[in-house]
């Protein structure tokens, strides 16, 4: 049997299917060992993602600037980025902790899917720990950051290195055990 172009073409589907099958096999075996999670969000980490510039909240005391990618990467101090919303109940309980952190750590807040007047009223009512507040009205920045809900906090070290992403409200334990050790070199 001579090998013609016909034979090569006829073997193409098999090759493609075999490649896919090997890929699936690898995915499945890494799923079993926990190295691959199909539901994982933003596993790349490391750096600040590209997101659209977020405009500041109008009529807010102390925070007049919005948040952009560049300003976040060009800082020479660590920043704790906090996604929150006025409609989120855990955010209310989290705010006093953030206020306690504020003197020692720069806090930037992003109001996630919120109306500006409600977000401002929320901060006026419960305290305003943020140096800058940006509005993410349609949640597009949250997608870039891989946010699954509010509140979530992200620690960014100078140079735009994302070192910590906490997907729940902060607590005393989390702050003392997880966050503060990361900040030790900077305190």
């Amino acid at each position: 049997m001579t090998l013609t172009r016909r034979h090569i073409l006829a073997a193409l589907p098999l090759t493609g299917a075999a490649a896919l099958g090997l890929g699936f096999q690898h995915i499945l075996s890494s799923m079993r060992t926990g190295q691959f999670d199909p539901r994982a969000i933003r596993t790349s980490g490391g750096t600040v993602p590209q997101f659209p510039p977020l405009s500041p909240l109008p009529g807010l005391q102390g925070a007049i600037e919005g948040i952009e990618c560049t300003s976040l990467t060009q800082q020479n101090k660590p920043i704790l980025l906090n996604f929150w919303a006025s409609w989120c109940i855990p955010c209310v309980t989290e705010l006093p902790l953030l206020s306690a952190l504020a003197p020692s750590l720069t806090l930037w807040g992003i109001a996630y899917k919120d109306r500006p007047e409600r977000a401002s009223a929320f901060l006026a009512r419960n305290g305003q720990p943020f140096e800058r507040v940006g509005q993410d009205k349609d949640g597009s920045a949250a997608i870039e950051w891989g946010i699954t809900g509010v509140p979530e906090s992200i620690l960014i070290l100078p140079g735009g290195h994302v070192v910590w992403h906490h997907r729940a409200a902060l607590t005393h334990e989390v702050i003392t055990h997880d966050l503060l050790p990361l900040l030790r070199p900077f305190l």
């Binding site: 006829a10 098999l14 299917a17 699936f24």
Partner: peptide
């Protein structure tokens, strides 16, 4: 299921590669 798929699809496509020309 992947093993089953490999047998069914792989077998069918191997047969195809062999006999289709």
């Amino acid at each position: 299921i992947l093993t089953l798929l490999a047998l069914v699809v792989g077998g069918a496509l191997t047969l195809f590669a062999w006999r289709a020309p």
